[in-house]
């Protein structure tokens, strides 16, 4: 199985350490093992959305209600969620913790992912969303905790980009 189970387990444990209770997600290949772990956890609520925009609305509701949440999507899903990130999360100063699988970057073999890969970081910068590119499994717990802290203090969306190094076991690696 080329999707990294170890990476998924580390992320899941980091979410537990952040006391995450609600996870909204639009599943994709890289994210399946993580979402399976979330689904099996009785203390976490997984909400599978039809479109990533919904996640930003759900994030706002969970935040207002005082329930720590995280919103998991592919980078193409981030592109689909730009408007609510701007006109809900940023307009209303709502912290949103985004976990984004970073497709179309170094090592990508799927041609259809590559344009999204090119624009992901420039879009995040244009949106003034702070992001951290997570490349090492032993860094997961610390960076997720830090991202959550920054989102809550800044009242702003913060993104963690999950790279191939963390979520994928290349056969030759």
């Amino acid at each position: 199985m080329p999707v990294s189970l170890e990476g998924a387990r580390r992320i899941y444990e980091a979410l537990k350490a952040c006391d995450i209770r609600l996870v909204s997600a639009l599943p994709e290949t890289w994210l399946v093992p993580l979402l399976r772990l979330v689904e099996a956890d009785q203390e976490m609520r997984l909400v599978q959305v039809a479109r990533e925009e919904e996640s930003i609305g759900i994030a706002a509701g969970a935040y207002f209600a005082g329930v720590p949440s995280v919103h998991v999507m592919q980078n193409h899903g981030l592109l689909a969620a730009i408007n609510p990130l701007v006109s809900l999360a940023m307009l209303y100063k709502i912290p949103v913790l985004l976990l984004i699988s970073y497709r179309g970057s170094w090592g990508e073999r799927d041609p259809w992912q590559t344009q999204g890969g090119l624009v992901t970081e420039p879009v995040l910068r244009a949106l003034t969303i702070p992001y951290y590119c997570l490349r090492r499994e032993d860094d997961v717990a610390r960076r997720l905790k830090e991202a959550q802290a920054l989102a809550l203090s800044a009242l702003h969306p913060v993104a963690v980009l999950l790279t191939r190094e963390v979520l994928w076991d290349d056969e030759e690696a």
Binding site: L22, R45, E53, E54, S55, G57, G61, F64, S87, L91
Partner: peptide
């Protein structure tokens, strides 16, 4: 006051939480 379409998503987050 914006984000048309997402009031129900926000309500879903509130109701679940």
């Amino acid at each position: 006051e914006h984000s048309m379409g997402l009031a129900s998503s926000l309500g879903l987050g509130l109701a679940l939480a």
